[in-house]
Design a binder for these strands. Structure first.
Lengths: 162, 162
DNA sequence: AATTTAACTGAACAGGCGTTCAGGATGAAA
DNA sequence: TTTCATCCTGAACGCCTGTTCAGTTAAATT
């Protein structure tokens, strides 16, 4: 709390004019992040399943890059949430997963993907994509769009998409 | 510290007969875990690249299951390590990644895999496999070997292995 | 039986934590 | 000019933290 206050140029007590307590601050941060992510995902266009999956892969990697800090907090501090707040965040997370599941289902129905379990596959893909954040550096040997190409290749292969 | 001591049935101070400080305890835990993992990985057999990759996938998921707590700590508390201890753990982690990279290189050379960047692919696969730990429950709808089958399918597809 | 060694307790330490609150400063409204 | 509403400070609170250490206990050694 004192660190956050200092970052804003204020004493710790002043924060309590804006939030009831630390737990609520964390919850608002994480819920806000997930809501932003879901809203940004609204803009994803249609097309055939293969195109939609590619779009999702690139979108997810982009978002993780732009909101690196929020993503980090959202994954590391889940255990610090109240049961109630945890449930809220998890619900939003499931909604995001559902976006990807929809694409996968469409692909299976169109005969474009070969998938045993859509839910597990969606989670596996997201886990794979999240991994980018742990090692990618702007100063590294690869540009982000190259990384996106590589992950898109892997994702397509993983769902049996030719 | 007091929690750990209580778990062992002892006062907090008694722990300091065995460790110099908390940081060292954490480091030993994580380094020990990685060393155990690397040692267990020694038993992986040879065969063609496809068989070796399958073996690795199943092995990794098994290990993550057996040592769930250690894996959790190893991923969540990385940021609590001294620079020096972090470097040690990361070196071990790279050594483990290298085991998978070897398999991927062999597959590429044999023409069995299509991979743009072996290092990135190894990391992506491991990130995907680690994801299992966050949701798999013994009481869930799938047995572990079913989950392994699913992940093996995805991994094979991701590396372009037919 | 006397002595040494090892393991542990229980209390204390200094510092950090989230949170509260009386009071001061500042500017808007009356 | 006075009143009121905001926003913030600075100090304090009770509690938790990792760590130390003198002293007790019990077992091993002589």
């Amino acid at each position: 709390m004192r660190q956050i206050a200092a970052e804003v140029g204020v004493q710790a007590g002043a924060l309590y004019n804006y939030i009831p307590d630390k737990q609520t601050l964390l919850a608002r941060l994480m819920i806000g992040h997930m809501e932003d992510l879901l809203e940004a995902a609204q803009t994803l266009q249609g097309g055939d399943p293969l195109a939609r999956l590619e779009e999702f892969v690139r979108f997810h990697i982009d978002q993780n890059r732009e909101r690196g800090d929020a993503v980090f907090v959202a994954y590391m501090e889940l255990r610090s949430l109240t049961d109630e707040n945890f449930a809220r965040v998890e619900a939003l997370r499931r909604a995001y997963e559902a976006r990807l599941e929809d694409v996968l289902v469409a692909g299976v129905e169109a005969g474009a993907f070969k998938i045993t379990d859509v839910r597990i596959t969606a989670r596996a893909l997201i886990a794979m994509l999240n991994g980018v954040n742990t090692w990618f550096r702007e100063s590294g040997p690869r540009r982000l769009d190259e990384v996106q190409d590589i992950y898109w290749d892997m994702a397509r292969g993983a769902v049996g998409g030719g």
